[in-house]
Design a protein around this nucleic acid. Structure first.
Length: 493
RNA sequence: GCUGCCAUCGUCUAGCGGUUUAGGACAUCGCCCUCUCAAGGCGGAGAUCACGGGUUCAAAUCCCGUUGGCAGCGCCA
């Protein structure tokens, strides 16, 4: 079996987005599954839109996602360096092969202006003809070229597409896909500014870097025949191609900002776990025979195969991602959740929020509430009441549990009674406290809920929260008594 | 407009000619558990397998057409 080499080649024109991550992930999984190499290349041939900040953002995102690469930029000692196309251009790599294509009559200089080319396409549209460059510069004479040069015109280099015949792509996930050469454009391979275009640079680099499999979104499928012609003209061996079905937004159109978060970093900010995002994305477009939903990373690496990737596009469902995130969090120990939470606080610059929080109490609180955590950010609102000096009594809770006609007398009684009895209560464990509360209910012939609820609201300010007695246990007697006292003073005097 | 891709519950999907009253997961609904909220357990509803033709003894599964959706058509990647 050949040694697999795959690459992820984002263009640094913004944050890494969901679609990009999916492509990166499938390449990475494939490499891991086949014990091959995963390469990160930066396709920054668009001088105008590429930024250094984007490169950094992509790196950050890849690192957070733990999609580690075997080869990539900023390591100049590797056989295939450099890994940024700008640097490769500086070394004349693309020009060399463009010259070779010209020498072999597979490419030619074109002096047409953008306006002329644009006019051609518009005319084709009107005539219901395939939109393409008409090839008028294909056969310029030596004199004509000299004349253009004299006029100071700067040419682009175009690839000369065959006028007839059919080229067949044998795609791993889609099978045979045929393209009519006549419909293919004489596309630009070197721009007027000397930079290679994507379709050219991609081929040159994939060949030079000995990429064996090209896994990418299916929005690239129409680029593939063009690229294949370049491989053929240069007499290079074709890699295997696999075109993955796209991820769409909730309305079935291409995923974009109006569908919600695009950047993975935004998911991180929301409090999603790296492994949840990875697991969820793997489920879009790939499945196992038994339709397994939850995977560890190791499990995924082991089971992944391109052959089981689907052909139809899938809609990104944030509800399922949210479920999966909760699922992943629940599978962690309280200690791990705490670590994740602290990382998240640091990442979002919220670390000061827990400055005065007792770590032991926080971990206990996380343990009590772990089943409710869907996002790391949820932890804040789930446990904050343990740490506030002044209990924030919620209006609804106070109205229904303390002040309604039906409950106010009982609530007042339960709280004053509890204040006295709990002040000297020895065994402040959950089981013991529960016994106390139940005994009180029996003794006074009231319902247990009439005892539980007022105490819950008194110490937490809310109607909902963790198991009451565990909550009291970790809060401790002193604090519980203090809070009951606050409630009595505030609402019953 | 040209070209290509796709089409199974609302969503992600299993299924690769007979084992299917089409299976699982999310969401949704009900019940149980229960001090609340969750989590968990159990169950329900939800797909004439886009439509129409073939092929075959037999089709969600193979072929053709139609319709619909999406993508590409840049000196963007």
């Amino acid at each position: 079996m050949i040694d697999v080499r795959v690459r992820f080649a984002p263009s640094p024109t913004g944050d890494l987005h969901i679609g990009g991550v999916r492509t990166a992930l499938f390449n990475w999984l494939f490499a891991k599954n086949r014990k091959g190499k995963f390469i990160l290349r930066i396709d920054d041939t668009d001088k105008v839109r590429s930024t250094e900040a984007s490169v950094k953002a992509i790196f950050d995102a890849m690192r957070w996602l733990k999609l580690d690469w075997d080869e990539g930029p900023y390591n100049e000692n590797l056989k295939y360096s450099p890994y940024c196309q700008m640097e490769r251009k500086e070394k004349g790599i693309y020009q060399k092969y463009a010259d070779e294509l010209i020498a072999g009559k597979f490419a030619y200089y074109c002096y047409c202006t953008l306006e002329e080319v644009d006019a051609m396409r518009r005319e084709a549209h009107v005539n219901k003809a395939p939109p393409k460059y008409d090839g008028r510069c294909r056969c310029l004479t030596y004199e004509q070229i000299e004349q253009k040069k004299k006029e100071g015109k700067i040419p682009v280099i175009r690839f000369k597409m065959p006028d007839s015949g059919v080229i067949v792509l044998n795609d791993i996930v889609r099978g045979k896909v045929k393209f009519d050469n006549f419909l293919l454009d004489d596309f630009v391979i070197i721009k007027a500014n000397g930079m290679p275009t994507y379709n050219f640079a991609c081929v040159v680099d994939d060949h030079l870097m000995e990429i064996t499999h090209v896994l990418r979104g299916d929005d690239h499928i129409s680029n593939t025949p063009k690229q294949m012609h370049i491989y053929n003209a240069l007499n290079w061996r074709l890699p295997e191609f696999a075109h993955l079905a796209m991820i769409l937004g909730s309305d079935g159109s291409r995923l974009s900002k109006r569908h919600g978060h695009m950047s993975v970093l935004e998911y991180r900010k929301e409090g999603f776990l790296q492994e949840a995002l990875i697991n969820y994305l793997a489920l879009l477009g790939w499945s196992t025979e038994d339709s397994q939903q939850i995977f560890t990373i190791e499990d995924m690496k082991q089971k992944f195969s391109i052959g089981r990737c689907g052909t139809s596009p899938s809609i990104f469902d944030s509800a399922k991602l949210l479920w999966l995130n909760g699922e992943k969090i629940r599978s962690k120990t309280p200690e791990q959740i705490y670590e994740l939470f602290v990382d998240w606080l640091n990442y979002t610059n919220n670390d000061r929020l827990i400055d005065n929080w007792d770590v032991k109490l926080l971990k206990s609180a996380i343990f009590l509430e772990r089943n409710k955590i869907k996002l790391l950010k949820d932890i804040l609102s789930l446990v904050d009441f343990f740490f506030t000096k002044d209990v924030d009594y919620r209006e609804v809770a106070v109205q229904t549990v303390f002040l309604s006609e039906k409950s106010k007398n009982v609530a007042k009684f339960v709280l004053t009674e509890s204040l006295i009895r709990l002040s000297n209560y020895r065994d402040f464990s959950a089981t013991s406290l529960e016994k106390y509360a139940r005994d009180l209910a029996v003794e006074k012939n009231i319902k247990t809920s009439q005892v539980f609820h007022p105490i819950r609201v008194a110490i937490s300010g809310r109607k909902q929260g963790p198991s009451l007695f565990h909550m009291m246990e970790i809060m401790g007697r002193e604090e519980v008594v203090r809070r009951i006292n606050i409630a009595i003073n505030k609402f019953f005097t």
